[in-house]
Design a protein around this nucleic acid. Structure first.
Lengths: 340, 340
DNA sequence: TTTAAGTGGTACGATTTTCGTCCCACTTAA
DNA sequence: TTAAGTGGGACGAAAATCGTACCACTTAAA
């Protein structure tokens, strides 16, 4: 069997997962402190008394727990199944706890973790992109403009985005980078627009221009100015996160620039900004578009990145970002949780 | 370990299982006839349009299906998971279908099937008893009298019955049989009464008396008469089913009697009545209490028996019984389904 | 081209279910 | 004896679910 029933279940009934988790939590507490009463149980589990009653009532009918005058206790068969139950939910709950932990530590709005490791597992990378795409799809209705960055992960998001008729306008978050055409923000923006039956605009600015050249270009090109403005006021901004050393390679920075990066402790890159582990932007490429520190004005900020090798980069960038939703994978998340 | 989660899930969230099964069914139908519309889907699945809508909405949010102008279709990732999904639900659905099939063919009120084979698997036997006990427990409130037969399965029911304060009166369904004290109906009735904080009565009549002796005893013993009357009007009657040859051994029948049994095609026994595979009672022991053919007057009739070796016996007895709930196991059920 | 069947989307009121919040009789241990 | 805690029961409010329409649109047959 390739996929756990648990994963399948999570796919076809994510709305019921909350109920199941509550039951599991209750059983854990009952197992810890049996016999224990409804109200006490409600207190330590954070649920209301009434829902606790509803849950234990089902569990009683299943013969897992018993109601005694001293409280709710596990039946022998319930006790018997506890180890299996724990093992089953261990991973699930670990992801849950990590989500909460990372969210609080990094002060983010939300954190999503998909199982697996993007570095070694191709399907995990697919899952990551898919999760990002689903989050984006849920936002598309009631939104006018979406800005999206480049990179292989964003390309995956664009590829797995379900078709819809939201008709949003999609713009690249930053100018061009690298030489793989399929990972260009322009191309990805076009692909997303196609899936959403919307419009797209391009930013024809190469990376690594001198500041003066950039200024000249901007002065003469009203179109670019308009698109940059659109990106800055986009309700949704979606971007990937890269390791600073790898991104330096891809941008073909000079030796001097790379030395400066390492000297300043840069570990992560996103939207052209290189950050150190404290969340400070230590270097920024000369290009147009949104930068990391401007994200507060956007309604929905979504960062997608996975793989244990990117853990430090993710910490750095999300600290610099201060807000938004992080979509990552199990491997990166556990590494992040270890580091912070 | 993977398979375990399904069973565990069934234990801790049996109420959600219906929803999950509906989703599974819908996915099967979508997979069969994609792209297919809401109303068509509602028609072939037997669900209401609104419910179908709610389900596919969840599935869409999970990225499993896609809504197109031609109908609902599977996303690539949904198509990918279908084989696993089918495998996961194969067993579950087989049990479901068998329940329906046996219920209709044998014209019973209800059929419950627990996984496994009681003949070879001790835990399956526990599950069987437990299921019977749970059914009984659900009935106890609002009921005054329960009649129960003897046998190892009934002993298991009594042992796994959750304690409760229903205070029912428990009587043995029939007089004594065999020589194992722990399987006597009297003892089991007492045990059930103890668990239910109720009262119990005994039937001090040994098996195999001559008819004249029996008559004499009954004439002089008003107590026995009263208890037999209680048993016959009990709202709940619970009994096990045995193979006729084995029961003949246990009752130590004479060679002539056994020959008559085999000649008449007796295969199953319950409540002192030996039945052939057509459901005709071909021989009845000389004892007091309820007999198989009188069960129509009882509100709830529950037969509990499992193991593939008992398949024929179960068919015979349940055909003679005409009504009631049958609790059996997977092995017996598949054998029964094959035979009828 | 026209037409009829079928599609997803939307809306709204009725129904059912869930939930919050009491009180009660009872058990238990201090 | 008392005080804390137990499960059970009940009832009205709140919420989710559900039935049932209608709509604009696509599609494929006529």
């Amino acid at each position: 069997m390739k996929q756990d029933f648990l994963e399948i279940f999570q796919k076809i009934a994510p709305d019921l997962m909350g109920t199941v988790k509550e039951r599991y939590l209750l059983l854990r507490h009952i197992s810890d402190a049996e016999p224990v009463g409804r109200r006490t149980l409600a207190g330590i589990s954070g649920l209301s008394e009434r829902v606790v009653r509803a849950h234990v009532d089902v569990l009683r009918r299943s013969g897992i727990v018993r109601f005694t005058t001293m409280g709710i206790a596990l039946e022998p068969q319930g006790k018997e199944m506890m180890p299996d139950l724990l093992e089953c939910f261990l991973r699930l709950n670990r992801l849950d706890e990590m989500q909460q932990y990372i969210r609080q530590k990094l002060r983010l709005k939300e954190v999503c973790i998909v199982p697996g490791n993007c570095d070694s597992d191709k399907t995990a990378k697919d899952e990551l992109s898919r999760k990002g795409a689903l989050l984006l799809a849920d936002l598309l209705d009631g939104v006018k403009t979406v800005a999206i960055s480049g990179g292989s992960t964003m390309a995956g998001v664009a590829a797995t985005l379900p078709e819809n008729a939201s008709g949003v306008a999609v713009v690249p978050a930053r100018g061009g980078i690298g030489n793989r055409v399929e990972f260009q923000a322009n191309v990805i923006a076009a692909q997303v627009a196609s899936k959403a039956n919307g419009t797209y605009h391009m930013l024809h600015i190469p990376d690594g221009l001198s500041e003066s050249t950039l200024r000249v270009m901007l002065r003469s090109d009203m179109q670019t100015k308009k698109i940059v403005a659109m990106a800055k006021t986009a309700e949704v901004i979606l971007f990937g996160i890269g390791r600073s050393d790898i991104m330096a390679d891809r941008r073909e920075l000079t030796v001097a620039e790379r030395k400066k990066l390492t000297d300043d402790g840069a570990v992560g890159e996103a939207l052209g900004s290189y950050c150190n582990v404290s969340g400070e932007v230590v270097y920024a490429t000369n290009n147009v578009g949104i930068s990391l520190t401007e994200l507060q004005h956007n309604l929905h900020v979504i960062a997608v990145a996975g793989g244990s090798s990117k853990a430090k980069a993710i910490i750095a960038v999300m600290r610099a970002c201060h807000t938004g939703t992080l979509v990552t994978d199990e491997a990166a998340a556990s590494e992040i949780a270890k580091l912070i």
